[in-house]
């Protein structure tokens, strides 16, 4: 029922032209410890520090891996350090709940891609349970989304219908979420005021669709040599013995699972 209401409202809003607005600036940052059990044969999950920068009407979810190498290597004082970029994932999720828009920034070596799509509508069931996270009063909700049962905690004092990754649609920012099997979790790791950075997908990214991007990503993964030759579009190089492509991390348990119907 709520879903019907939402989609009706959504259609009404979507059919209206969006008005140009001043760019949105981040006000607060919600920190998460993201964990994903990628390979069921290897019990060590993938972990990463993530951050959700929340503005007045939009948000961006991205990595918060600090320049760890810089710090650890500066053990003994004084050395020439090169300016090293972050280590984490390069994928960023931009949520625009008013426009019902989800923009994903993705990356294949050398190029940023910007993939626009609809913000997936999620039908939540709110429970009466409440808890406090970082001094914030939060309420619990559950749902089934993309093959997993999620439990999320949202904070109504932050009245934006956004959350980490693709999770959205609750009357408050989602500060903690995990699935029932604990294979995917966004664990609350603090909340703070944020530097006033603009929330906007990169202007120089190549705009494309999800399908085209997946095709290109698969090529780059299966055939990194061909992809690299093209990306550098150089001429012939000498005969080289390199037949097996390098193997990436094994992901037999993706975050989005096919629905069992």
């Amino acid at each position: 029922m709520k879903w019907i209401l939402f989609s009706a409202v959504g259609l009404a809003i979507a059919s209206l032209p969006a008005t140009a607005q001043q760019p949105d600036h981040a006000q607060i940052a919600v920190h998460y410890k993201f964990s994903h059990l990628r390979d069921t044969t290897n019990r060590q999950p993938y972990r990463e520090n993530m951050v959700l920068l929340v503005g007045d009407r939009s948000s961006v979810y991205k990595t918060n891996e600090g320049p760890a190498q810089q710090q650890s290597a500066a053990g003994a004082d004084g050395r020439t350090r090169t300016d090293i970029h972050m280590r984490g994932t390069k994928v960023e999720y931009y949520q625009f709940p008013n426009e019902k828009n989800l923009v994903r920034k993705d990356w294949i070596p050398m190029t940023d891609f910007v993939i626009s799509g609809a913000l997936p509508p999620i039908d939540w069931h709110i429970t009466r349970d409440t808890a406090t996270f970082g001094g914030m009063h939060c309420q619990k909700a559950t749902t089934h989304f993309r093959g997993r049962d999620y439990t999320a905690w949202f904070c109504p004092d932050l009245p934006l219908h956004i959350g980490p990754w693709k999770l959205n649609g609750l009357p408050g920012v989602i500060v903690d979420a995990h699935d029932s099997k604990n294979e995917v979790s966004f664990t609350f790791d603090g909340i703070s005021r944020s530097e006033s950075t603009v929330i906007q997908p990169p202007q120089n990214g190549v705009k494309t669709t999800d399908k085209e991007f997946s095709k290109l990503e698969e090529t780059a993964r299966k055939d990194p040599e061909a992809y690299s030759k093209l990306m550098s579009h150089n001429g012939a190089s000498g005969p080289v013995m390199d037949i097996k492509p390098g193997s990436g991390p094994v992901i037999n348990n993706p975050i989005e699972l096919p629905e069992k119907k």
């Binding site: 940052a29 300016d83 970029h85 070596p109 914030m136 909340i191 530097e195 097996k244 390098g246």
Partner: peptide, 28 residues
Amino acid sequence: VVVHNNKPVLRSRGDTLNYKVSDFSTAQ
């Protein structure tokens, strides 16, 4: 709304591509 919290803000400049050697190397 947010209780003042001392989490460091990430700063990154420059343009670095990181290639994991294991992704690109082969047995040979």
